[in-house]
C-alpha cells in the first residue's frame, strides 16, 4: 500500500463510507468513496456494485472480479448512539454501547439528571432535543433511544429521529405509554408506517427487570437490527 493512499483512507473512513479494494494477486489498490474511485486498481461497474453491497452490509469480504479475487475492506463511519434521558437505564446502557463500539451522546435538558458526575466519559448536552438533534445530524449509522417517558422531552427527539435515516429508533415506555405516544405523533402529522419505525416497548423480550437487564435487552435489539438478525423482526 502507498502511504498517501493509507492517509487518504484514514481521512475518508472517518468522514464517510469508504472501501479499500486490493487485488490479491498484484497488490494494486483503489479507494472507493461515494463519488470517486482513486488509485491504480480499475474496477468495472459490476465490481463497484459488489463494493457498495459490502459497504451496505458493513462487511469486509473478498469478491471475484474478471481479473481475479479482490479484497474489499469496509470503512464505514463509526456507529453512534444518541440517548435522550440521563436516567438509571442510561447509566447501565452507555458503557455497554461504548464497549460495542458506539460513540454515545447523551441529551437531557434537566440539569439535575444530566451531570458529568453521573455520566463521566460521556458526551453530554443539556440542550433540549429540538435543538440538540439537528446539530447531531443522525444518519444511517446512528441509533436513537428515548428514555425519559416525558413527552416534552421524548417527543421532539422522536420527531427528529423519524425525519432522519437512523437505523434504529427506540422509545422506553409501557404499551399504554407507547399507544399514547403513537396517538400524539399521528396528530403531529406522521404516517403510521413512519411511526412504526419506533420500537416500543423497547428492547428484545428477554424478561429484563433491572436497569442493567433492560440495558442489555436494548443493546441486544440495536445489535439485532444493525446485523439484520431474525430477532430484529417484530411481526
Amino acid at each position: 500500500m502507498k502511504r498517501a493512499l493509507l492517509e487518504r483512507l484514514l481521512i475518508a473512513g472517518r468522514t464517510g463510507a469508504a472501501a479499500l479494494a486490493t487485488d490479491l494477486a498484484s497488490g494494486a489498490q483503489s479507494l472507493v468513496t461515494a463519488g470517486a474511485n482513486e488509485g491504480e486498481l480499475a474496477l468495472g461497474l459490476q465490481d463497484l456494485a459488489q463494493v457498495r453491497k459490502a459497504l451496505d452490509d458493513d462487511q469486509s469480504r473478498t469478491i471475484e472480479t474478471a481479473t481475479g479475487p479482490v479484497f474489499v475492506e469496509v470503512w464505514n463511519p463509526r456507529l453512534r448512539l444518541i440517548v435522550v434521558g440521563a436516567v438509571h437505564i442510561a447509566q447501565a446502557l452507555i458503557p455497554l454501547a461504548q464497549l460495542a463500539g458506539y460513540d454515545v451522546t447523551l441529551i437531557d435538558p434537566r440539569t439535575a439528571f444530566g451531570t458529568l458526575a453521573r455520566f463521566p466519559d460521556t458526551a453530554l448536552t443539556n440542550d433540549w432535543p429540538n435543538e440538540a438533534m439537528p446539530a447531531l445530524k443522525p444518519d444511517r449509522r446512528t441509533a436513537i433511544l428515548t428514555l425519559t417517558h416525558d413527552p416534552k422531552i421524548d417527543d421532539p427527539a422522536l420527531e427528529a429521529a423519524l425525519r432522519s435515516d437512523a437505523f434504529y429508533v427506540g422509545a422506553l415506555g409501557s404499551r399504554r405509554t407507547h399507544a399514547k405516544r403513537i396517538e400524539r405523533l399521528r396528530e403531529a402529522g406522521f404516517e403510521p408506517d413512519v411511526i412504526a419505525r419506533i420500537r416500543g416497548p423497547v428492547g428484545l423480550a428477554i424478561g429484563a427487570q433491572t436497569p442493567a437487564e433492560i440495558a442489555i435487552s436494548i443493546m441486544a435489539e440495536i445489535t439485532a437490527v444493525l446485523r439484520r438478525s431474525l430477532l430484529a423482526s417484530r411481526a
Partner: peptide
C-alpha cells in the same frame, strides 16, 4: 477504531523512515 490505530501507527513508523509491512485477514 483498532484498525485506524494500527494504520496510523504504521504510517508514523513509515514517516520515521522504517520499513513497514501490513498483514490483513482477508
Amino acid at each position: 477504531s483498532n484498525s485506524e490505530q494500527i494504520l496510523s501507527t504504521a504510517a508514523e513508523w513509515h514517516r520515521d523512515g522504517r520499513g513497514v509491512a501490513l498483514a490483513t485477514v482477508v
